[in-house]
């Protein structure tokens, strides 16, 4: 039983990483209705920017804030330059665009900062949290920041005019335009926010998985899976989905014989598909009702 409790705790700790990334995924999905395959790479690039600032002697929190602002601007810039012209192109062409962006960002980061693994500092320290060996203060801090982000997002979407406008633009673009919402800029804003959240996620994850251009590959897949599991329309669902995926992944690794590190991912994905077959809109998503 103690093993079980410990594994659940460790699962929550890894789940925090996925939850962070899943939040960014849901954010962009709310704004543009697609999953952005380049999201992880954008987050990785932001993390490298903050690392570079710290190398130049900027204190952690200043680098943190500057990176979030730069990422926000960068996300908007990418949308304006690359994806606004594709707004009228077919959906699949847009997906190809994400893949192209992925290749570009990954390759450029590899050229600037090369592919060696780098240490990344943590602001929370890495001593055991409340006497438990399985969860460090950094991971506890990460869970805290994720929940804080979730609350901030909830507040933003529910209680601010611009949050309301973004929701309107995402769900019924034409009607939103008719009441005077600039839907095109709402999409850009969504990109900016997703990029900023991705940057925060990246900076929190980097001390755990270490900094290198391919650090986000696995994390993004789990982030997608968490977001889909929780329901793509619900930020809360995404965070819960992240924790669930983390816990399940750890339990599967411990209790199912023959499951090494390599089979963890397929098994986690198989679970998610099983959930989706039973609940196609995810655990917390609203089912989409279509009009013929």
């Amino acid at each position: 039983m103690e093993l079980f409790a410990n594994q659940v705790l460790a699962g929550i700790a890894t789940g925090a990483i996925y939850a962070c990334m899943a939040l960014a995924v849901v954010m962009i999905y709310q704004a543009i209705d697609h999953l952005n395959f380049a999201q992880g790479e954008m987050a990785m690039f932001s993390t490298f920017m903050s690392w570079q600032m710290m190398q130049w002697g900027v204190p952690y929190w200043w680098a943190f804030i500057l990176t979030v602002i730069l990422s926000f601007a960068g996300g908007i810039l990418i949308e304006r330059l690359l994806f606004k012209p594709l707004a009228k192109a077919p959906v699949l062409t847009n997906v190809a665009g994400f893949i192209a962006l992925f290749a570009i960002v990954n390759s450029v980061a590899g050229l600037i900062w090369d592919f060696t693994i780098k240490q990344y500092p943590t602001p929370f320290g890495s001593s055991p949290f409340l006497g438990s060996q399985l969860i460090s203060t950094h991971q506890a801090g990460m869970i805290g920041v994720t929940l804080l982000l979730l609350a901030a997002l909830y507040f933003f979407f529910q209680f601010t005019r611009i949050g309301l406008a973004m929701r309107a633009a995402a769900s019924l673009p034409e009607s939103a335009r008719l009441v005077g919402i600039n839907t095109s800029w709402m999409i850009a804003l969504g990109w900016g926010m997703a990029s900023a959240i991705g940057a925060i996620a990246g900076m929190l994850i980097a001390p755990v998985v270490f900094l290198e251009p391919n650090m986000m590959g696995g994390v993004l897949i789990y982030g997608f899976a968490s977001a889909v599991l929780g329901g793509l329309s619900s930020p809360l669902g995404a965070v819960i989905g992240g924790f669930l995926v983390g816990i399940f992944e750890n339990l599967a690794g411990t209790y199912i014989p023959g499951v090494g590190n390599e089979l963890k991912l397929p098994i986690a994905l198989a679970l998610i598909i099983t959930v989706l077959v039973v609940k196609p809109a995810g655990l917390f998503g609203r089912p989409i009702v279509k009009r013929v």
């Binding site: 979407f157 769900s171 019924l172 619900s234 609203r286 089912p287 989409i288 279509k290």
Partner: peptide, 8 residues
């Protein structure tokens, strides 16, 4: 998040 998106 909103009710409207269910009938698009």
């Amino acid at each position: 998040m909103s009710a409207a998106e269910e009938v698009v």
